[in-house]
């Protein structure tokens, strides 16, 4: 029988495509920041890079790379996509709760000490997952180094409101830890 099957060479995809120059520029400029935002939420670089790939892919399919809102869109999508991934992880963790390790005890009377004590990845991320979407996104964007103006653009709020919203988000974060 003259049947032959050709498999793609490992580690190389001959169908790799040239991307528009504007998109490559955007990717190079924003990839690190998008991964950073996702990693701030997930604390897992590999998972954050997966999220970043999905974010850029969604953008590529539906928006022009030179759109004025490109960066803001990517920042917002990074935060929301990572929060979705975090919540999926939390659901998975709850199912596996039998194997979970209890968090370290801390003095409940001292919120500051409690925050410091909450450095374990699981607890901090669980708090982020429980926060309202916008509050969690605000914290992730701010503590990833975005300016108030960049946060305002990403979350479609007035720049003058970012400070107030951020304070509320921080209070909510502390309450969840308490």
């Amino acid at each position: 029988m003259g049947l032959s099957v050709t498999l793609p060479a490992s580690g190389h995809d001959s169908r790799a495509t040239a991307l528009p120059i504007a998109f490559e520029r955007l990717f190079r400029t924003e990839y690190g920041r998008v991964v950073g935002i996702a990693n701030r939420i997930l604390n897992d670089t590999a998972e954050a890079e997966d999220v970043a790939q999905e974010v850029f892919f969604s953008f590529y399919r539906t928006h022009a790379a030179d759109a004025s809102y490109a960066s803001a869109w990517l920042h917002a999508a990074a935060a929301h996509s990572a929060l979705n991934a975090l919540r999926a992880r939390a659901r998975r963790d709850r199912r596996e709760a039998a194997d979970a390790v209890a968090p370290d005890a801390a003095d409940p009377a001292d919120p500051a000490a409690r925050v410091v004590a909450a450095e374990t990845r699981d607890e901090v991320r669980a708090v982020l997952a429980r926060l309202p979407e916008r509050s969690a996104a605000l914290l992730a964007l701010r503590y990833s180094g975005l300016s108030y103006a960049e946060i305002a653009a990403a979350l479609d709020v007035r720049a003058s409101s970012v400070g107030t919203l951020l304070r509320r988000a921080e209070e909510a974060f502390r309450r969840e830890l308490a």
Partner: peptide, 29 residues
């Protein structure tokens, strides 16, 4: 500072060019 500390992560360097190559491959695929 407490919150910043709590949300701190290891900022491992990312391989942007490698990520871009993966992206190109997916778009092609």
């Amino acid at each position: 500072e407490n919150i910043e500390h709590a949300l701190a992560v290891d900022d491992a360097p990312v391989d942007t060019e490698g990520a871009l190559a993966r992206f190109r491959a997916r778009v092609g695929r």
